[in-house]
Nucleic acid binder design. Structure first.
Lengths: 167, 167
DNA sequence: CTTGGAATGTCAACAAGACTGACATAAACT
DNA sequence: AGTTTATGTCAGTCTTGTTGACATTCCAAG
C-alpha cells in the first residue's frame, strides 16, 4: 500500500521479478509437499493421484454425475473412465443410474471407498493444519486469497460452488 | 490467537475439517491455474513441464551440476537425463565439463534457452503478479508463509538456499 | 413418432514423464 | 590399486494424460 514501483506507477504492490520468482518456486515446492503424504498411501494401495482426485470429489459431492466430475477435474472422459472403472470394479465407488435422467450415472463412495478417503484426507489435512499453525492465523487468510486469485475464472466458480455446498 | 478448539486444546488456531478441506481444494485448483499458461507455451514448442522445471532451475542457478538439479527436482537421473538430452540436442542448454572436478557437468542456458525461459516466466510471473495484486499486500506474506510451512524440511532448505543466492 | 443431440461407455493407439534395475565410463579420493 | 562419485545410457514398466472412432441409451423437440 505504501510502496510504489520505481517507474512511479500507482500499483498497490511493488514486486520485483525476484520476489515473483520466489513465489513461483514456493508454489512448486509446496505442491510437492502437499501431495507427498497421500502419494505414499496411494502407492500402498496401488492407486495414483488421479484416483485420489476422483475419490475426493465424489466424497465431497456424493451423487455427482460423471459429466460434473469431468468439468471439475479437467480431464477427458476416457481418462476419468479408466480411473473410475478401477474404483468401481474394486468396490470403492458405487454407481447409481439417475432416476429422473437415466443416462446419468451418479457416483457414491462405498464404505471401503470412504475408508480410503478418510485415510488420505487425514494425512493431507494434518499437513495443512500444521502449515496453518506454523504460519499463523492471518497467514491463512492471505494464503487462501492468493490461491483463489490464481485460479482460472471458470474453476474459481466451481471452487466457490463447492464451498457453498460444503458448509 | 484468541480462538481455541471446542475440546479446549491450547492450539493457536481452531480449524474445522471443512476449512482445511477448502484449503486443500484451493491448492489443487490454484496449481492448475499456476501451470496453465506455461503449459500452453511449452506445448507449442513440443516440450512439457519437466523441461520447464529444468530450464527454470538452470536459469536460476547457472552452472549448476546434474546432481544438484536432481536433488532439487526430486526425480531420477534417468528421468532428468531424458529431458536434459533433448534440451541439449536442441541447443537450449549448454554443458561444460567442470574444471576443478572434470566428472561434473555444469549446465547453462544458451541464448535460445534463455529466450524460452523468458517467455515462460513472463506469463507465469504475470499471473502471480495479478494474483498478488488482487489479494493485497498482507495476503502475499501469508501466502508465502503457508507455502513454506507446507514444504518438506529438506526442500525448504533448498528453497531458502535459492532465495539467498537469488538476492 | 421420429429424429437429433446429450450423456455415457468403451476400444485402440499413442505420448509424456515418472519409475526400477543394470551396466559403463571417467575421474577423484584414499 | 581399489573404491566411491558423477554421469550417462539401455531396457522395461506404470500412470495418466491425449485423440479418434463408435455404440448405447434416452430425453426432448419437431
Amino acid at each position: 500500500m505504501t510502496e510504489r514501483s520505481p517507474s512511479g506507477s500507482p500499483s498497490l504492490l511493488f514486486l520485483t521479478d525476484e520476489q515473483l520468482r520466489q513465489g513461483i518456486e514456493a508454489m512448486f515446492f509446496a505442491y510437492r509437499g502437499f501431495t507427498a503424504d497421500p502419494d505414499r498411501i496411494l502407492a500402498e494401495h496401488g492407486y495414483g493421484r488421479a484416483h485420489h482426485r476422483a475419490i475426493h470429489f465424489i466424497h465431497r459431492s456424493p451423487g455427482t454425475t460423471v459429466n460434473n466430475l469431468l468439468s471439475i477435474l479437467g480431464v477427458t472422459k476416457q481418462s476419468l473412465n479408466r480411473v473410475l472403472r478401477s474404483l468401481i470394479d474394486e468396490g470403492l465407488v458405487e454407481v447409481r443410474v439417475g432416476t429422473r435422467d437415466r443416462r446419468e450415472r451418479h457416483l457414491y463412495l462405498t464404505e471401503k471407498g470412504a475408508a480410503l478417503e478418510r485415510e488420505l484426507s487425514d494425512v493431507q489435512r494434518e499437513r495443512m493444519r500444521a502449515a496453518y499453525r506454523q504460519a499463523g492465523p492471518e497467514a491463512v487468510q492471505g494464503f487462501r486469497a492468493v490461491l483463489e486469485a490464481m485460479m482460472d475464472p471458470q474453476i474459481r466458480r466451481h471452487f466457490r460452488d463447492l464451498q457453498d455446498n460444503g458448509s
